[in-house]
Amino acid sequence: MRRRTYLAFASYLVLLFLIYLGMSYSKKPWLAQEARRMSLNLVEFMDGTFFAFLTLLPTLTLLLPVFVSLAAGDLVAAESQEGTLRSMLARPVTRSRVLAAKMAVLALYVAALCLFFATASLAVGSLCFGPPGDLLFPEMVYRLGDGLRIVPRDEAIRAILGAYLYAAGAGMTLGVLGLLLSVVCRHAASAAIATLVVYFMSHILGAIPPLQDIRPFLFTTSMEAWQYLFADPVPWGRIVRSAAVAFAFTASFAILAWMLFERKDILD
């Protein structure tokens, strides 16, 4: 992977800083009112846990897909474009091995990103707003209910780390889709853009009310199942089912990528 791939780590820190600024200057009257209704002081809940929780949604539904798509789009198309794929494949190494190695690197990258996101959000949140405590959050954020929910500190941290762990696995669905499109496309940028287009199209389809019946079959739906980790009780069956669907999508994309890569003529 090229150096620009690692810019993801730096840009995440910038995002955290922007969220920090937003939190510092936002009044959140609705949340404060709700908290008062429950005889709670909202300020007490503005800590590392809340900050890490707040960054979860934009990170896992927007940033992670963008970074994964960019990295995956590069994997075959960029090497093909620059000719290094030719140098590599003119050696005694099978294409399956090359593709498997690329998939392994992608998996490591997604895992490293998620680990970094989890650690950085908790660390920055703790530094800026104090050490992690109990988590207070409005359930409607994840469509889990209408009120405010308080999650004890350890359980909240477990849920945040679990969300990143799930995203590391489910992120590979999008990553392998990117790899597939990287095999098909001649240019890395086309592959990355195509991956993002498919991702957002799938999201949009899932959000259209008359199309709710197809929602469970969209790969983006299974990628979002980490949100259930914040429900009470946690619907483990649903999470496992979503993980299985994500895995099925990943396996299908991988098989298709492998078949196309095996037949691909390296002309550049």
Partner: peptide, 21 residues
């Protein structure tokens, strides 16, 4: 026998391509 056929084969095809970084 892809791997064994290419075991002792070296090639320079068109322009040489390397990782610039």
């Amino acid at each position: 026998e892809h791997d064994r056929a290419l075991e002792h084969v070296g090639a320079l095809v068109e322009r040489p391509a390397f990782y610039p970084y």
